[in-house]
Nucleic acid binder design. Structure first.
Length: 201
DNA sequence: TGCCAGGCCCTCTTTAGGGCCTT
């Protein structure tokens, strides 16, 4: 199984724009089922964090005033990740911020995203719901810090990914659980997952 | 001062609506 980079953004809103930007990024490298590298930084994009989002994330405007510039942080995290295939929980969200922040430093994403939310909906349909926090508690995954901070959430997502890969092997007999297979699986209609898994086994 | 989206997926669907997820 190759190396995978799990990322998580904290932001001041839900859709990137001139006033809606990333406020924190974390990336963890996963290899052979273990976390082998970590990057985390607050990032100052000179935007305002509304009070309800400050309550959610614990990231305040005062903290961001002291943070390094967003452009410097994005250059660092892009170097840290390199060409490693990416995973995020609800990747559609993190992908649009990743692409937006990269574009602002004149860079372009070079790899695909797999989505642990889409994979969990297919492989754990019996879960109470598929929020990251719920899945972490339900599966008994390790907690490394405050929820809704980038490093803690990216580590939780990494543990979820490893658990999903183990499920593929143990419950479905799928030994090849690389990033390309995950990207293919997340596009399979939920009703056809069992047949699809039987074919790739 | 404090801005509020969008892809996925199900169904009482497909000429649509609404819940789930992310912050």
């Amino acid at each position: 199984m190759g190396r995978i980079a799990v990322i998580d953004f904290e932001t001041n809103g839900l859709s990137p724009s001139a006033s809606c930007r990333a406020t924190e990024i974390a990336a963890v490298l996963v290899e052979e089922g273990r976390i082998v590298g970590r990057y985390q930084s607050l990032m100052n994009a000179n935007v305002f964090v509304p009070r309800e989002i400050e309550r959610l994330t614990g990231i305040s405007n005062a903290m961001l005033r002291e943070a390094p510039p967003a452009a410097r942080v994005m250059r660092e995290v892009a170097d840290f990740v390199g060409d490693t295939p990416l995973v995020a929980h609800n990747a559609a969200f993190d992908r649009k911020f990743w692409d937006h922040e990269l574009a602002l430093i004149g860079a372009t994403r070079r790899q695909e995203f797999a989505c642990s939310l889409l994979l969990a909906r297919r492989l754990l349909p019996e879960a109470p719901d598929h929020k990251l926090g719920t899945l972490g508690r339900w599966l008994g995954l390790p907690v490394s810090g405050r929820a809704h901070r980038a490093l803690a959430d990216s580590e939780m997502t990494a543990h979820l990914l490893v658990r999903l890969q183990a499920l593929l092997a143990e419950r479905h007999g799928v030994r090849r659980t690389d990033h390309a297979l995950l990207c293919a699986l997340q596009k399979v209609p939920a009703a056809r997952v069992a047949d699809w898994l039987a074919q790739v086994r």
